[in-house]
């Protein structure tokens, strides 16, 4: 299997750390991984994105320009990355702040109201874990158990007291994710893990 995933949003939404937790979950699952961030001043308030590749073989290029899965958390990222999802691939987005919803018909599309949930729960810090939960629900390339391990590996020990809240947020994301459009024969939460593998 090989999954090329882009996670994109605003700096400060926890995009890079969500990518790191996903990548570390892949490590715990015994996969090869790469995590390649956008870096520089754009991190501060601008857009931020990270490419995570999970594979059961040696990964060649850490930089790719089309993706199996795009996780989109703001409009700029929608405009940029919707066209870069491979036909039959997956797009997950948070509708908060989205003015132009995805239009492609050849990809599966899921919505996760992570911003709304985090606001309601009064804990914006777990926002990105809600999104991660949605991702591993619709594209289960890492198990929930390994996601917990990846989370623990990624967070410094001094904040390990927040692990239960973050784990709960992942489970919430798995439950909250809504299906907008499924391309027949391709990935859904119920589908086997290899459904999106090419």
């Amino acid at each position: 299997m090989k999954q090329e995933i882009i996670i994109a949003g605003f700096g400060g939404q926890g995009v890079l750390s969500m990518g790191k937790i996903l990548a570390y979950s892949g490590v715990m699952q015994g996969l090869e991984v790469t995590w390649m961030p956008s870096y520089g001043p754009e991190m501060r308030g601008g857009t931020a994105n990270v490419t995570v590749i999970l594979s059961d073989r040696r990964i060649s290029s850490p930089i790719v320009h089309e993706f199996d899965t795009a996780v989109v958390l703001n409009q700029q990222s929608m405009d940029k990355f919707e066209p870069q999802v491979k036909p039959g691939g997956i797009l997950i987005y948070d509708p908060n702040g989205i003015t132009r919803h995805p239009e492609r018909k050849d990809i599966s599309i899921y919505r996760i109201g992570a911003t709304a949930h985090a606001a309601k729960a009064g804990n914006p810090r777990v926002f990105n874990m809600v999104v991660l939960g949605a991702l591993i629900q619709v594209s289960p390339n890492v198990t929930l158990e390994n996601a917990y391990k990846g989370l623990a590996k990624s967070l410094p020990e001094r904040v390990h007291k927040t692990l239960p809240a973050n784990e709960a947020a992942i489970r919430t994301g798995m439950e909250l994710v809504e299906t907008a459009q499924v391309v027949p024969g391709l990935a859904t939460g119920e589908a086997p893990a290899n459904a999106v593998i090419r």
Binding site: K20, A23, V27, E32, V33, T34, W35, M36, P37, Y39, I59, P62, I63
Partner: peptide, 8 residues
């Protein structure tokens, strides 16, 4: 790329 990238 290599400096900023994370890998195992």
């Amino acid at each position: 790329v290599i400096g900023q990238m994370m890998e195992k």
